[in-house]
Simulated scan of single mutants.
Amino acid sequence: MQLETYISDLLYRYECVIVPEFGAFLTQRVSAKINADSNTFFPPKKAISFNEQIQQNDGLLAHYIADVEKIPFEIALEKIKKRVASMKSQLVEKENISLDNIGALALNSEGKITFEPSNHLNYLTDAFGLNQVVSPAIMREELKREVESIEKVIPLTITPERRKSRPYLRYAAIAVVALGISGFLGSKYYVNQIENHNQIAQETANTQLEHKIQEATFVIENPLPAVSLTVTKPVGNYHIIAGAFRVEENCDKIIANLKAEGFNARKIGVNKYGLHQVVYDSYENRKEALKALHDIRRNNNSDAWLLVKNLE
């Protein structure tokens, strides 16, 4: 009977397989390792050992043989007993016993069984498909010394430059970085120039409009009595935003509705996204602005928010 076949099958699933009246084959998980001398990578595995002291039958091996061969448990025990007797006889006669994919057994001068494990199979199922890998060593220092020895015999004027880092790559990298920085600064400068231009253009348009209004004259045959009105110009750096709109006509509708509700609504210009902003009102005092914002969020618009900006 090929007893080692059944032992090998059980070693995949169990950490201890006892051969009654002979000994036990044990497995222990070993982590992956690298042999620096041979440049070999070894995956994790189950290391196999043999303990002659563990001989009490636990029924595992016999039950497995009985299930595989479809025989009674007692007959399986008899087969194991015969195989054990044969192995002991071989060891007494100084013969080595080779168990395929498990290892080799021998009897030493002290009458003890020695075991040399086999590395042909990895019984760790987690490492299935992983094999040992050998990677040739990279002999950088030896190659460097070899090149230096050649240079002493055959001096080449271009050799030192080849051995150094390529300067044109360094210059190219510097140029790329410089272009990136200049592009960024240039784009930022361009954006600032556009913003300044837009602001100046807006201020100029407002000034011209005010002049035209001031210079306009109206001829009325039956003039009404003069009425003096005090107009309060909205001031302050704290603005409660009601919304921002792409179409300016929508702003006028919103302003009309808000004024009908009693707010001092107005437009405060276009934000950086090109949207026309409408405010409920502007305040000089932060506390007053926050109080008004709280009231508006509670009673009118929960999406209202506070913009802190100097519009002058």
Rank of each mutant, 00 (worst) to 15 (best):
T5W: 04
Y14N: 00
C16V: 09
F22H: 04
L26F: 11
V30I: 13
K33M: 05
P44A: 10
Q56A: 12
D58C: 03
H63Y: 05
D67W: 08
D67P: 06
P72V: 05
P72F: 13
A85W: 10
M87L: 14
M87I: 13
D100E: 12
N101W: 06
L105I: 07
A106K: 13
L107Q: 10
L107F: 11
G111F: 09
K112L: 14
K112C: 07
T114R: 15
S118Q: 03
H120F: 11
A127R: 13
Q132E: 13
V133S: 07
R140K: 14
I150L: 15
T159W: 14
R162P: 04
R163D: 03
R166W: 03
Y168V: 00
Y171K: 08
A175W: 12
G183W: 10
Q199A: 10
A201D: 13
E203W: 13
N206W: 15
L209V: 07
I241C: 05
A242E: 04
G243E: 03
N250M: 01
I254Y: 10
L258K: 07
G262D: 00
F263C: 09
N271F: 10
N271V: 03
E284D: 07
L293Y: 14
D295P: 01
I296W: 12
N301D: 15
S302C: 00
A304V: 08
L307D: 04
L311I: 01
